[in-house]
Computed example of a mutant assay.
Amino acid sequence: MSNVAGFWVRLGARVLDALLIGMVIGTLVFVFRMDTESRLTQAIESVASILYFVLFPTFVYGYTVAKRLLNIRIVKKDGTDVNLSTMVLREVLGGIIYAVTFGLALIVSAFMVGLRKDKRAIHDLIAGTYVTHDRAEHWE
């Protein structure tokens, strides 16, 4: 593992990505005059978020929009590009663990990224990934 990304840049990328998703969903809600409190709207937002965080890095060399802006990306532990199964483990299974533990595992993960030398969180350990500042060779 090389050039690992720390807590603050990872948090910043997640916040920026959440804002991006919120802006897209907010625009759709406005254009289609959807009820923001409806279960359908909330379900659409949840599915869009999951698809974004799973599919985007799968097809764009481990980047999300914000990760690309901040020059970080998700890679497998051996430094190769992530694939669909890796991202499903990382985002979906990791998310389920965070939800089942009522966020306690998420807090533990934040400390892990902040304190561990390899900066890997619970979802990284599950999926065999880490976040790096190394650019994708395919992206140059």
Rank of each mutant, 00 (worst) to 15 (best):
T41N: 10
F32R: 03
S49R: 11
V108T: 08
L104F: 15
L125M: 10
L115C: 11
M34I: 03
G79M: 05
L55K: 05
Y63C: 12
G26H: 03
R39Q: 10
T36V: 09
L115P: 02
I25K: 13
H133I: 06
W139N: 06
T101I: 10
G95Y: 07
R33W: 12
A121T: 02
R116M: 04
R135G: 01
E37Q: 12
L51I: 14
T132F: 00
A5R: 01
L106R: 03
L19G: 09
F30A: 07
D118I: 07
T27F: 13
L84Y: 06
L69T: 01
E91K: 00
L104Y: 07
A110W: 01
V4Y: 10
V31E: 14
R73S: 05
F111W: 11
G94P: 14
P57N: 04
I25M: 14
T129H: 00
V4P: 09
A13V: 07
A43C: 09
G79D: 03
A66Y: 09
L93S: 07
F7I: 01
L70I: 05
S46V: 03
T132E: 12
A5Q: 05
T86Y: 11
F7Y: 08
A136V: 08
Q42C: 05
L51G: 13
I126R: 06
H133Q: 03
A66C: 12
A110L: 10
L93E: 07
R68L: 12
E137T: 10
